[in-house]
Design a protein around this nucleic acid. Structure first.
Length: 480
RNA sequence: GACCCCAUCGUCUAGCGGUUAGGACUCAAGAUUUUCAUUCUUGCAACCGGGGUUCGAUUCCCCGUGGGGUCGCCA
């Protein structure tokens, strides 16, 4: 494992909803980068918006990461030298730093009301100007400020962005980025309810948590000057910026909960293996140097590099996830898949205590599914005999079919045990030769009797799977 | 609207001046000498448009077009 000096990254979601695929991608890239360089992956909960806070989503965030196997090194409910990891528990620190900025003249009190601000923006829009706080509270006198504070007029604190400068920074994905300070507004850093905004909290936390690289969604790119301003104001050195391209809906809009349910837990619950979800998400905005696309988490850690992150946004299209999911179901160890499928059989009340048979069933049925829960759809006929449809019923009643069935029952009874697939195949050939029947006329009646359908596994597999007794019993039932 | 970013098959993408523009998913056909599924093979399918620069542009530059992001006391 390589080591560049002390890589520390964080995934810092706000608990306002379920963890969605975009968030997983951000978390995954942070995780991969940290693990590749033997660094630290931190989870921080940005719960500074009390109006949108949702208790369940904290639980969902953590459990989703856990289910995906993206374990964090520091974070909620874990020890770490930069705790606490909930921003709501770090308010003192934010207040202290906001005060420092005010004292240094780099931030100021603002007493504007929501109505005033709305009005201001409306006028700017009409005048076709960029909507931006006009700084009307920037130059209040000390006495004015004191009076308003004493009168308990609600206030916020805004950063005092200098005019006529250019914020210039390097982004590992975007390259050199320059943004004129005139475009950056005096962003609120402390809200009227005493909570910090993202900008203040994230900068302070990233600093004290010694974050070396900030990997976050591209929607943050234009906030970066505000963060840079804060770093400068505090005299801190900023982290290395890595803004990830956005994930889009099929209609090219930004991936969001409004456009359907993209929460990982939903996909996991639906039975897409975590390996598939991770592999698939990794390929959204990142690609290895060669043509390889199938990677385990460990292999991703090996191969991942920031340099190969794409610039353009990616559309999330479930088709490839479906395929990849099927691929993993077929490629994961049989025992593991069998184990994961157990619950679905139990739900349907199917008795799978015969382990040898169960593994054979899974081995065949896994070929036909892309999602775990679909397994029973393709497996229950191995356990229960379902009524035949019209077509099959007619086929099995034909004289020629009856001849095959009768011959086979006799041969099977007389056959020596144990009968492996090869022996059964020989029996099938013998049947064909002796009766002069071949092709569908031979296979369909047998398969219908054994499996309940003319389409399905080949005969040796079927008989091997059931064993002699059950095979005989099934065949018998269709002899008139 | 203002500012900025992005642009290769339908989708995810490789490509970093000279390639028959490659891979994967999807779709189609064929093979695996019964079917279904798996697997394998083959095929269909792309450089947004226009100008430059250059001996030569998918690649570099400009303009246009399209898409996206930002413009909150949300993150």
């Amino acid at each position: 494992m390589e080591t560049i000096n002390d890589i520390r990254v964080r995934f810092a979601p706000s608990p306002t909803g379920l963890l969605h695929l975009g968030g997983v991608r951000t978390a995954l890239f942070n995780y991969l980068f940290a693990k590749k360089y033997n660094g630290t992956f931190i989870l921080r909960i940005e719960d500074t918006d009390r109006t949108r806070f949702d208790e369940n989503s904290v639980e969902n965030l953590i459990s989703s990461l856990c289910r995906l196997g993206l374990d964090y090194d520091e974070g909620p409910y874990k020890e770490g030298d930069s705790k606490p990891y909930f921003q709501s528990e770090r308010l003192d620190m934010y207040h202290k730093h906001a005060k420092q900025l005010i004292d240094n003249g780099q931030a100021y009190y603002c007493f504007c009301t929501k109505d005033e601000l709305d009005d201001m923006r409306k006028k700017q829009e009409i005048a076709k100007e960029t909507t931006k706080y006009d700084g009307r509270c920037k130059n209040l006198s000390d006495t004015e400020i004191q009076a308003k504070l004493e009168a308990k007029i609600p206030f916020v604190v805004r950063m005092k962005i200098p005019s006529d400068t250019v914020f210039d920074f390097e982004d590992l994905v975007r390259g050199n980025v320059q943004i004129a300070s005139d475009l950056v507004e005096d962003q609120v850093i402390l809200k009227a309810d005493g909570f910090p905004t993202y900008h203040l909290a994230a900068v302070i936390d990233d600093h004290y948590m010694r974050i070396s690289h900030v990997l976050r969604g591209e929607e943050w790119l234009y906030s970066t000057p505000k963060h840079l301003f804060l770093y400068q104001a505090f005299g801190w050195s900023p982290p290395i910026w890595v803004h990830l391209p956005l994930l889009l809906n099929t209609d090219r809009s930004k991936l969001s909960k409004r456009h359907g349910d993209f929460s990982v837990s939903t996909y996991l619950d639906a039975g897409y293996p975590k390996e598939a979800v991770i592999n698939f998400v990794a390929l959204l905005g990142w690609h290895s140097a060669d043509d390889r696309e199938l990677f385990s988490l460990g292999e991703l850690i090996q191969e991942f590099s920031l340099e190969r992150i794409t610039k353009s946004a990616a559309i999330f299209d479930i088709t490839k996830l479906e395929w990849m999911s099927g691929w993993y179901i077929r490629s994961l160890p049989l025992q593991e898949v069998a184990h994961k499928c157990r619950v679905y059989f139990e739900k349907e009340g199917i008795d799978i205590h015969d382990e040898v048979k169960y593994l054979k069933v899974i081995s065949r049925a896994r070929d036909q599914i892309n999602k775990l829960p679909d397994i029973t759809l393709h497996a229950k006929m191995f356990y229960t005999e379902t009524p035949l449809n019209q077509e099959c019923s007619e086929i099995v009643q034909q004289d020629i079919s009856q001849k095959v069935l009768t011959w086979f029952v006799k041969a099977l009874q007389e056959g020596e045990e144990p009968m492996d697939k090869e022996a059964i195949q020989i029996l099938v050939s013998k049947c064909s030769a002796e009766l002069g029947i071949k092709g569908k006329a031979l296979y369909f009646p047998l398969r219908i009797a054994l499996f309940g359908d003319c389409h399905g596994p080949d005969i040796p597999l079927l008989i091997d799977l059931y064993g002699k007794q059950e095979s005989l019993s099934r065949l018998h039932k269709h002899i008139l």
